[in-house]
Write a protein that binds this DNA or RNA. Sequence first.
RNA 1: GUGAUUGUAGCUCAGUUGGUUAGAGCGCUGGUUUGUGGUACCAGAGGUCGCGGGUUCGAGUCCCGUCUAUCACCCCA
Length: 450
Amino acid sequence: MQGKKPTLLKGTRDFAAPQVFRRNYIFDTIRHIYQKYGFLPLETPVLEHLTTLTGKYGEEGDQLLFKILNSGDFLEGVDSHTKDYKTLLPQIAAKGLRYDLTVPLMRYVAMNKDKLIFPFRRYQIQPVWRADRPQKGRYREFYQCDIDMVGASSLLCEAEILVMIHEVLLQLGIKDFTIHMNHRDVLKSLATLGGATNQEGALCVTLDKLDKVGKDKVLEELKGKGFSPAALERLLFIFDLPATQVDRWPILTKQLGLTQKGMQDMQKILDYVHALGLEEPSITLDPTLARGLSYYTGTIFEVKMKHTNWGSLGGGGRYDGLTDIFGLTGVSGVGFSFGLDRLYSVLEALDLFPSSMGSTTQVLLANLDPASEKWTLKALTTLRTNDIRAEIYPAVVKLKKQLQYAHKRQIPFVAIIGEEEHAAGVITLKDMRTRTQQQYSLEQMLQELS
RNA sequence: GUGAUUGUAGCUCAGUUGGUUAGAGCGCUGGUUUGUGGUACCAGAGGUCGCGGGUUCGAGUCCCGUCUAUCACCCCA
């Protein structure tokens, strides 16, 4: 035994069969519903030009990008006196792993604007990578299930996505969720109220922690950031909003003004949601929600489980001008993304996975001796031709071992075709669960197994 | 990137105030004679005590560093 023990790269995981089956169950559910809403799949490369990726996620996002070292002698032509990594980086790395699926989509849309049919509806289920420090429910490699409508500014897009989120979650058996909704305009108004028009980011990031750290800490933090007592006074109403969105509405419209664009937009969206047949949507207006500030320009939403501190199940919003940087202007879009791993955790914690999942072998053919192997192989082929999942034990070992193997693999049937059986023209079929066995003809066995 | 905790057989862990050949349970392999699995019994394999330094006559046990995992912050799915 030589060599070091292999380990997994930080933040990555292997998925064994049971997990793969469960993950596929989620993928299939989402894919089916996405398609039902008229969205078509898109897949893009894992690697993109670093220039495509950088600058889209803010300073922090750039740091979380995995960069790929240039091939060959990557030091060739590099100024050896360069010590600043920001100037060195582009010289030694020109490629990177995608950080999300939205930016690759924008790149794709800009590149194919003449071929695409707008409004462009696409979904994309692929892994993304972030050099984040792993934590509970956070990995460096994880799957996003994106859905986007590009080239349509109607608020109907938002509404459709919200309804679809409901359908996916309910289909998976998740009931106790809330979609938090906010609007970039509301955040702006709050910043103005707080006398921090040019400090919107700082205000939002702090407000967003409300449900996590509580009112007092948020106020304290805002004080620390230089917000005046008078300004904070004007923002106090946010902290004592009623729980239901119906009750929140009048308070928010009063404080922010009826003509506030964000409020009007959200009202329209909710009207559409009702028109789409969702009587009691699990949607809450949450003026403290602040996500994706680096590119969302309109609505913002996020799905969370009620009464838990689990991370969000997904998030999205409207973005204007994301394609600008790729040379395509005036395009608005709305997108949303489910985090596969988050959904997985919830389904697991709530025991919502269907009990029977995956497919194990139905019948194991025992391998008794070289002579019997021949006719056993014949039976094996017949079984497979009849679409029965079958395998032969690939070595002549004691029957006891073969039965143990079947037991461990949870294979329900073991077929034994030894000399006795061959001479009598039968097959002994053992039912591992009842521990009984019976002799059948090949035909009868096929019936028994199908 | 910041802070905290952690690391002993495949897994879950013991391991006394630093002292001889590091243990248990589960699992694993083989056996309890001929073609029969969940139990029982018997036997066996498997550890450079994360890695690297240091203190000491002597370190799994103390100190420093490093890596890993976990948790929180930042940010986010």
